[in-house]
């Protein structure tokens, strides 16, 4: 039914949040190869394969973000090349909210401290764990998660973006939707939206740690990596 009066004012942000909730991709499974006898190789191969499939999903998801397809193809590429790891890491942190000392890369691929350390992923897991703690303390919910993920997409600082104004417009639209969402749901906490946005520096820092980790794996070699994953890693270097 159509909202009226004061309810109508609440419409626009709710439309965006509902849209983002529907656009949220199905969860992926990591499916570690039980026949791989080398635990480290199994962990790293599983992680890189999962990240490659996440990438495909993230690219498909970005097309559903309001206004993203109105950017030029070149700018869509520049934006995705600069923020895909932030989007990926935010998803992992959100999945890990319920687990204090574990990182949930996928439901069937959960790494504790020891498993991570053995595979050389100790620093990455610690960084994602720190980010997850921040969101746990904030009790980040699903609506806020999808809003924040969309904002992270449009928060690109890529120097290759040609029409920065168009990207700024998308960012403003989503920022406004977050402000409206929080002012409706938590009028008693006017700092809520700001608190969420203040997690973006840690998100970028964590994505930087992920980049260093993946680049290290690539440099050392021995772990199969798909072409798209390599292409996107290269784009960030």
């Amino acid at each position: 039914s159509m909202p009226s009066g004061k309810e109508a004012d609440k419409g626009s942000s709710n439309v965006i949040v509902s849209h983002l909730l529907v656009a949220e991709p199905e969860k992926l499974f990591a499916m570690p190869d039980p026949l791989q006898p080398d635990a480290t190789l199994r962990t790293l191969t599983t992680l890189c394969d999962l990240a490659d499939r996440e990438l495909v999903v993230i690219i498909g998801w970005a097309k559903h973000i309001p206004g993203f397809l109105s950017l030029s193809l070149a700018d869509q590429m520049s934006v995705l090349q600069s923020v895909w790891l932030e989007v990926l890491v935010l998803g992992v942190a959100f999945r890990s909210l319920g687990c204090e000392d574990e990182v949930v890369f996928a439901e069937d691929f959960v790494l504790d401290e020891e498993l991570s350390r053995v595979a050389g992923l100790g620093e990455l897991s610690a960084a994602v764990g720190q980010l997850a703690r921040r969101y746990r303390a904030l009790q980040l919910d699903r609506e806020e998660f999808v809003m924040l993920k969309a904002i992270a997409l449009t928060n690109s600082d890529s120097v290759y973006i040609e029409d920065t104004e168009a990207v700024q417009k998308l960012r403003d639209l989503l920022h406004q939707a977050l402000l409206e969402l929080e002012s409706q749901r938590r009028p008693e906490d006017p700092r809520r939206a700001g608190r969420l946005l203040l997690t973006l520096p840690l998100l970028r820092q964590t994505a930087g740690r992920a980049l260093a980790t993946f680049y290290g794996i690539k440099t050392r070699g021995g772990v199969p990596m798909h072409k798209l994953f390599l292409e996107m890693l290269e784009a960030m270097m």
Binding site: K63, H64, L80, K227, L228, E231
Partner: peptide, 20 residues
């Protein structure tokens, strides 16, 4: 751009998203 062939292709393919 040659270097980013796969991303380019994925973005170009079905440029219009599936109806939600």
């Amino acid at each position: 751009k040659e270097k980013h062939k796969i991303l380019h292709r994925l973005l170009q393919n079905s440029t219009s998203p599936v109806d939600l």
